[in-house]
Amino acid sequence: MDELAEGALKGILRFLGLIIRALIWLIYEFLFEKIAWYIGWPICRLITLNSLPSERITESEQASNLTNFVVSMTGLISLVALGAVITQLTGSA
């Protein structure tokens, strides 16, 4: 009887592990690669006086890994900074 319960528990844990892995992948794919790119792209264009990145905003798949990383990190950092500013302004800290 203990073996049945142990086998069922292992099956449930494997299933939960798959769900967690899928959620992590979705968060990375959607947040970092899409939302952060669309926020970071205009900021990078503004900072570099409309010269970098050379790809259009809809061409994130054609960008190099370094360009993709820099633009997405710029977008992610600006989101975090905006959140910090809003928190300070509303006095929620």
Rank of each mutant, 00 (worst) to 15 (best):
residue 14 R to H: 09
residue 27 I to L: 15
residue 73 M to H: 14
residue 19 I to Y: 02
residue 80 V to W: 05
residue 48 T to F: 07
residue 22 A to G: 13
residue 12 I to H: 06
residue 1 M to E: 13
residue 10 K to R: 14
residue 36 A to F: 05
residue 30 F to G: 07
residue 87 T to K: 15
residue 3 E to S: 13
residue 24 I to W: 03
residue 67 T to E: 05
residue 62 Q to F: 11
residue 89 L to A: 12
residue 64 S to G: 15
residue 4 L to Y: 08
residue 68 N to D: 09
residue 88 Q to Y: 15
residue 46 L to Y: 13
residue 40 G to H: 01
residue 32 F to V: 02
residue 66 L to C: 03
residue 31 L to S: 13
residue 62 Q to R: 15
residue 22 A to I: 11
residue 5 A to R: 14
residue 27 I to W: 08
residue 32 F to K: 01
residue 45 R to G: 01
residue 91 G to C: 02
residue 11 G to T: 02
residue 69 F to E: 10
residue 77 I to G: 04
residue 55 E to P: 00
residue 61 E to W: 14
residue 51 S to N: 13
residue 40 G to L: 00
residue 54 S to C: 10
residue 21 R to F: 07
residue 19 I to G: 03
residue 36 A to C: 15
residue 42 P to E: 02
residue 74 T to Q: 02
residue 19 I to M: 07
residue 20 I to C: 10
residue 32 F to H: 07
residue 6 E to M: 05
residue 32 F to M: 04
residue 92 S to W: 03
residue 92 S to C: 06
residue 53 P to A: 03
residue 87 T to W: 14
residue 81 A to R: 04
residue 65 N to Y: 12
residue 6 E to H: 06
residue 39 I to Y: 01
residue 15 F to A: 08
residue 4 L to K: 15
residue 18 L to I: 12
residue 14 R to S: 12
residue 7 G to K: 15
residue 41 W to T: 00
residue 4 L to W: 09
residue 5 A to E: 14
residue 37 W to A: 00
residue 38 Y to W: 13
residue 16 L to M: 06
residue 43 I to F: 05
residue 82 L to I: 11
residue 77 I to N: 01
residue 65 N to G: 11
residue 24 I to E: 05
residue 4 L to M: 11
residue 81 A to D: 06
residue 3 E to W: 06
residue 74 T to S: 03
residue 77 I to D: 01
residue 90 T to Y: 03
residue 29 E to W: 12
residue 11 G to R: 05
residue 17 G to A: 01
residue 77 I to H: 03
residue 15 F to C: 09
residue 66 L to K: 06
residue 46 L to C: 10
residue 36 A to K: 00
residue 41 W to I: 00
residue 48 T to M: 04
residue 80 V to K: 03
residue 54 S to L: 05
residue 92 S to G: 12
residue 72 S to N: 03
residue 4 L to T: 12
residue 60 S to I: 08
residue 86 I to R: 04
residue 16 L to Y: 09
residue 29 E to T: 14
residue 53 P to Y: 01
residue 21 R to Y: 07
residue 7 G to R: 14
residue 33 E to S: 06
residue 43 I to V: 05
residue 38 Y to K: 04
residue 18 L to N: 09
